[in-house]
Design a binder for these strands. Structure first.
Lengths: 227, 227
DNA sequence: TAAATTTGACTGATCGATCAGTCAAGAGAA
DNA sequence: TTCTCTTGACTGATCGATCAGTCAAATTTA
């Protein structure tokens, strides 16, 4: 009656239910009982498939982050193949989701965004470890992409620009309700201002003395990076 | 033996201890028992002073946010008195803490930043209510300040610029460890690049067609802000 | 059949909250 | 002064509820 679909059907049902409950209540606020109820399975089944609450939490991140990061990485690679990086294009890959990024493990993407936001601001060991294992890779690629697109950028400057951009993207994803409240009115879909904002911010840092590479004495850096 | 200092000494001790524990573990992760241990008082005393866990959580925000918002508001007022707003100055008030903002309820400011970050990304009722009551006021003032400094900005554009800036500031406050890891090296105090980044981002939005007020037919507002 | 999956019943630990009661300090009356 | 009475601050013990996790038995799948 339950295994009508695939053989992993209830495992996936647990993952999606956990995503919703974790997203809404956070790691500690969510309970295995409630996740089981949301997934309509017995609580013991969660432990059969995922052993512990923490492992279930991690499993969600591994599934989601790999899917999303692979997608962004592919688009970055595509840009790289076309020739030199254009900063605007790189920022667009970073900031704007590919239309197919939401549909693979259906729905729930907003819940995952909640989880990702909580993890990325958390300083507890679990959050730090998850960020390191799931996001440091793609982060370094974008930092390199920023440096390739704007050769004047120091690595430290590019790193901070990326972190700033992350903060902006998270706000764009999560704060549409608050934006409507603060601007006092109707709530259209969040405008794509973040691309222009990020691009201008990065370019301004590249012109700052502290964010610019020193090549010859005070001279503007001439060379692009080799490849 | 305990009331050697002020009459509110243990109440304040509880507040500071709660700040540390809530900051490290989050609302659900923190327990009244651990807060009581950290404050070195009986657990029942927490309920005596604050009634419930939630009320204790709220009390921390009321104390801290009022202090910080008042300080920023005063600096904004000071700018207003001096004449027309300069965008750079407004952004500096927003992004850079006054040196005395950390010292009043001593230490623990990093813990409070953790709490504030968790609340500002949370979509649960408690977080939303807290943001609304503690932060909407100062937010509207900064949005107005942005519009005064850059008259071309639509209210919607100014609102999103403010939210982006919030995301950037949070990253600058909380991600120094990750920045050091990603840039692969030593970790100086987080550079003040965020001011230039935010300023450039806002100015770029003001030049976007969607973020700019329409004055005459399609005509571009030509000048930068006076001053 | 054997293996994989799923369940209900259960455990010990810990949660937030409540309780009656202790203790020192202050107020008013003598 | 001394004796009562009240009050605010504080505590140890304990409540029922809920937590993550376990296990043997039942069910489904191959």
């Amino acid at each position: 009656m339950k295994a009508v679909t695939a053989k992993n059907s209830s495992r996936d049902a647990i993952l999606r239910a956990a995503e919703r409950v974790f997203g809404e209540l956070g790691y500690h606020g969510a309970s295995m009982r409630e996740i089981a109820m949301e997934a309509k399975v017995a609580q013991a089944l969660l432990h059969y498939h995922f052993k512990t609450k923490e492992a279930l939490y991690v499993a969600i991140f591994e599934q989601r982050s790999q899917l999303i990061n692979d997608r962004r990485q592919a688009r970055l690679q595509e840009l790289r193949k076309k020739g030199a990086f254009d900063l605007r294009a790189v920022v667009e890959v970073f900031a704007l989701p590919a239309p197919d990024m939401f549909d693979d493990p259906r729905q729930n993407y907003e819940s995952y965004q909640q989880m990702a936001a909580a993890v990325s601001v958390g300083h507890d060991t679990r959050s730090v470890a998850l960020v390191k294992s799931c996001y440091d890779g793609i982060s370094k690629q974008f930092i390199d992409a920023f440096m390739a697109a704007v050769p004047e950028l120091t690595k430290a400057a590019a790193t901070w620009c990326y972190l700033y951009a992350l903060g902006i993207r998270r706000q764009a994803e999560l704060q549409t309700d608050r934006a409507a409240r603060l601007s006092g009115g109707k709530n259209p879909s969040p405008p794509a201002w973040l691309v222009a904002f990020i691009e201008a911010g990065i370019l301004s840092i590249a012109q700052t003395s502290a964010g610019r590479k020193k090549t010859a004495k005070g001279r503007a850096p001439t060379k692009r990076k080799p490849q």
